[in-house]
Simulated scan of single mutants.
Amino acid sequence: MSHRILIVGCGSIGERHLRCFQRTGRAELAVCDVNDSLLATVSQRYQVPGFRDVGAALAAGSYDGVVICSPAHTHLGIAVQALRHGAGVLIEKPLSTRIDDVDALRSAVAAAGKFAAVAYVYHFIPGVAAMREFLRGGSLGRPLQVSVVAGQHFPTFRPAYREIYYTRHETGGGAIQDALTHVANAVEWLVGPTGRLCCEAAHQALEGVEVEDTVCVAARNGDVLVSYTLNQFQAPNEVTIQVHCADGSVRYEGHEQRWSVFRRGDSGWTHYAAPVAERDALFVSQAHAFLDGLEGKPTALCTVEEAVQTLKFNLAALESARTGKAMTIP
């Protein structure tokens, strides 16, 4: 079955979604962007129709799904518009930069009866998914503590970071909303929602911006204590998530493309390969999952409610960093 999909936003992530949906062989695609030059380039490169305005794109035809890759502060308005036109939605992370419009999204999803999900791509990393299934098996007992250490050289991966949404919190910029949100959502997927946190954040190194590029968070997810350490200037591109349970530990190492188990009484870690052929492979899997969701099939995609919870984490971390106070997340 082929689905008509509109990609809103032709920046780096929008272009990635476009080519990955094309690779599924299950979608007829169109794109939309307010930047005429960028729109023309991407439309021509992938030989798909292009529209400058979301309203015009939606009026031009019926879409099964809309993938929203515009700056985060525009996500919910576009999502509501798409749902009212009868399309399902896949919203890039973070869900938004504000909590205020979440109820409007919930109402639009309910009224449309369409599939809605949020593109937290860690749900499709094989090592993270395998670790989650292992934890759910319960052989190590209940989780007690999680530690996350992550970082990369952001300018290598986003050379134009000074010219895009990243420069301002209001548009979804800074390390908390851009990078920490990925691992926070993954940890909540593994051990449950965050209820309390305290955050220190600072601009340490990235040139040409003032938003934070370094974050340290101490959090409580129910009975589980969690710590995050992340920066966007270090040379190695690495992420490690460790979950320590009553009877052993489990670990994901993205840079080693593996997950590992250390049971109480073992002499060392047992490693399990979890290779990712190339980064687009995760987004192809995510695209297939969205198309499956449109067809009523179960998927591993982040739900709207899971993304709302992570939005609350983002906002609490920003407020804690600003005020120096611990924050409770309702």
Results as ranks from 00 to 15, higher is better:
Leu38Lys: 14
Tyr165Phe: 15
Gly65Trp: 03
Leu95Asn: 00
Ser267Asp: 10
Trp269Tyr: 00
Arg158Val: 15
Val148Asn: 10
Pro298Phe: 07
Val54Ser: 12
Arg322Met: 04
Thr229Met: 11
Asp213His: 00
Val187Asn: 03
Thr167Glu: 06
Leu29Trp: 04
His169Gly: 07
Ala307Asp: 00
Val42Asn: 03
Thr240Asn: 15
Tyr46Asp: 05
Glu306Pro: 02
Ile125Tyr: 14
Glu92Val: 04
Gly296Asp: 02
Ile78Glu: 13
Phe313Lys: 03
Ser249Glu: 14
Thr229Leu: 12
Ala129Leu: 10
Thr229Glu: 14
Asn237Arg: 10
Lys312Thr: 03
Gln22Thr: 08
Ala116Phe: 06
Gly88Ile: 00
Leu311Arg: 00
Thr24Val: 01
Pro94Gln: 07
Asn314Gln: 05
Tyr120Asn: 10
Gly88Leu: 02
Val89Trp: 02
Glu238Ser: 14
Val250Gln: 05
Arg106Met: 10
Asp103Gly: 13
Phe124Pro: 09
Asn185Thr: 06
Asn35Asp: 14
Ile91Gln: 09
Val80Thr: 11
Asn314Gly: 02
Ile91Lys: 08
Gly138Pro: 12
Arg162Trp: 08
Cys245Lys: 13
Val80Asn: 09
Arg264Gln: 14
Gln242Ala: 13
Tyr46Phe: 14
Leu282Pro: 04
Pro159Phe: 09
Pro94His: 07
Leu225Ile: 11
Tyr63Met: 07
Phe290Lys: 00
Tyr46Gly: 06
Glu305Ala: 02
Thr214Tyr: 10
His153Met: 06
Leu301Ala: 06
Leu144Lys: 13
Val261Pro: 01
His17Phe: 12
Thr156Met: 10
Asp178Val: 14
Ala116Glu: 09
Arg196Trp: 15
Gly14Leu: 02
Val276Ala: 04
Ala274Leu: 01
Ala287Ile: 00
Gln81Gly: 04
Ser43Thr: 04
Glu212Ile: 03
Ile125Pro: 01
His288Lys: 07
Trp259Glu: 01
Gly127Cys: 03
Arg19Pro: 02
Leu282His: 06
Ala79Trp: 08
Arg263Phe: 06
Arg251Phe: 06
Ala57Trp: 11
Asp247Arg: 15
Asp178Ser: 14
Thr328Ile: 13
Val102Glu: 10
Ala186Gly: 06
Leu39Cys: 00
Trp259Ala: 00
Cys302Pro: 03
Cys302Phe: 02
Thr171His: 07
Arg23His: 06
Asn231Ile: 12
Pro71Met: 09
Ser2Phe: 03
Cys302His: 02
Ala219Ile: 06
Ser62Tyr: 12
Ala60Met: 02
Glu295Cys: 08
Gly173Asn: 02
Val187Pro: 05
Cys245His: 13
Pro193Phe: 13
Gly65Ala: 09
Gln309Ser: 14
Ala108Gln: 04
Val239Met: 15
Arg264Asn: 12
His17Arg: 10
Gln286His: 11
Tyr122Ser: 11
Asp36Tyr: 04
Leu294Ala: 01
Pro159Leu: 10
Ala186Cys: 11
Ile329Gly: 01
